[in-house]
Design a protein around this nucleic acid. Structure first.
Lengths: 325, 325
DNA sequence: TTGAAAGCGCTAACAC
DNA sequence: GTGTTAGCGCTTTCAA
């Protein structure tokens, strides 16, 4: 910058003013400076700038699994809205690991992101102290009990969604509906299970422990859990708590059917386009991802601007996509 | 930091030394400082630190489409290797748009990333001048003709892969093989087309213009291109140049078969797990994504360390996954 | 309309 | 072992 200043015969204050279009700079001076800037292909150091002005126009997005299409699409939408508002996005991936989440939150805050959108693993105590003054909005998952009143949260009505689809299955005549969820630490798994149980209870169906399995939202152990359901229960439908789990269940059902033959109805929380082409029928729950992205960013930007309104928990309704052959 | 220093009764130099574990600090002093740091929940400002030491331990990854599972998986692998080497990753998404790519390269460099991994849209002239001194490795796509000798590139042998799969189809008896690619600006599209043509020529098949369509790697117009192939040619197989295009082709074939009936063999460049479950047969080409990720990062880190070895173009072989019912 | 000087929070050279 | 001081590249008073 000093170089530019001296070549243009002005002070670096003036160069700064030209770069930021502020203050009154004579047009001739401005032109002169601009010319030198272009000649030298000068690029300002954003690090120094951010350090000085104390903001980075960047928000951090922490998700649990970038291989989950739900999150990819969420990130994609957040990025689009962020760009419209002149913000950049840094994406981090926790692999559902609490330690990674804590580390990323720290790192991003130390790098002075202006705000954070987080799909939390859910068992972190005292987020308040972790994030300090940095605004944060939770998506998809509610933080731990102590924290949930102190933060904004944007997600879907998991319970209602699970309830709806389970009820649909019962009405369609299924008697033994298996349920494979991720962990019960994240509220997502818990809420989805509740909806399932409520629908069963309402229909006066027994809630059989052996039909309810829980593993990981990464889908890692879902294959063997599904095998277990197929081998040891009379299940005629399996409800997977996300699409990664669904994929494993599908593998298991297909392998099972190589030797035996059993009609199984499959249900997935989260929709993927390829479900339309699956040889085995998959009914799914579709989340309004764009709404979630837009709303969470909207709230975050408000907080960054200094809004101190009450913390909100926003729940969107889901759509049931029935695929019956 | 001044606060820490005064509370611990030392200078901020000492605090800095404690934080970075360098220089000789008496253990008692160090303990004292650590205690204050914890009490105050102090977090160092990485912006200031980076500005001073002139590196950020961050690499930027620019991809063309985060919704493409190939890139998601690539990013995921790069992240893993980066973390092992104590680097952070910033991900940016260009949507196959040249302007976005240029902007992101600039932004990331202005934010002083230590290096860049880029899947370029391919029609940017003079990358050299755009990136200046910042090390950069291209993945998946080769930069424009002028630049390709001045940068490292890591990707697969697209031509050979296309050739192999086309040859396989010919040997299996297919006579009219349609081909839908993305744009021809990126080398990817071009190379994949060459392989297809070579196999046809070798088998003394005519190369029919009406069987070759090109649209976008985002898959946007692939549905109608596939319709066109189905309605106006005698194609008995369709080769999609990536899995996003394949998905659209699949939709088109399925819709076509609602009224008419035609057996179509489908081939996808890039494999996705769900292909195993598709009701219509999909043969696919699988790239060694983990190798690509690891190698590109390895080269980049070498360059960051100052390596000035000759620029390399590294091509990996692909795997053909034949799914015949 | 412009410039001089201070300072954002940190590290590093040098002195003690 | 520890402290003093200068400075990374920028913005922002304040004064001219």
């Amino acid at each position: 910058m000093d170089e530019i200043a001296s070549r243009a015969g002005v002070s670096k204050t003036t160069v700064s003013r030209v770069l930021n279009n502020i203050g009154n700079v004579k047009e001739s001076t401005s032109d002169k400076v601009m010319k030198v800037i272009e000649e030298m292909n000068y690029q300002p150091n954003e690090l120094a700038r951010s350090l000085r002005i104390n903001n980075t126009k960047t928000i951090g997005v922490i998700i649990s699994n970038i291989l989950n299409p739900f999150f990819t699409l969420l990130v994609r939408n957040i990025e689009d809205f962020a760009q419209e508002n002149n913000y950049h996005v840094i994406i981090c991936n926790t692999d559902e690991k609490k330690e990674k989440e804590v580390e990323y939150v720290r790192t991003l805050i130390n790098r002075k992101v202006d705000g954070l959108i987080v799909a939390t693993t859910g068992d972190i105590k005292n987020y308040q102290q972790l994030v300090g003054e940095t605004p944060i909005v939770f998506v998809d998952r509610v933080p731990s009990e102590d924290d949930r009143k102190n933060f904004d949260v944007v997600l879907v009505d998991n319970e209602q969604a699970s309830y709806k689809v389970t009820k649909h299955l019962i009405e369609a005549g299924y008697k033994n509906i298996g349920f494979i969820t991720g962990n019960n630490i994240s509220t997502t798994g818990y809420e989805r299970l509740i909806g399932y149980r409520t629908a069963l209870k309402e229909a006066k169906f027994p809630i059989k422990k052996e039909l309810i399995k829980s593993g990981s939202f990464l889908g890692h152990d879902a294959y063997s859990l599904a095998q277990d359901l197929l081998d040891n229960t009379l299940c005629d439908a399996i409800f997977a708590a996300n699409s990664l789990i669904l994929k494993e269940v599908l593998d298991a059902v297909k392998d099972y059917n190589k030797t035996k033959e059993r009609a199984i109805e499959l249900i997935s929380f989260d929709n993927e386009d390829w479900f339309d082409h699956s040889s085995i029928n998959i009914t799914s729950i579709k989340q309004p991802i764009s709404d979630i992205a837009q709303k969470s960013l909207e709230i975050l930007l408000d907080r960054i601007k200094g809004s101190t309104s009450n913390y909100k928990e926003i729940r969107y309704a889901t759509e049931l996509i029935i695929r019956t052959k």
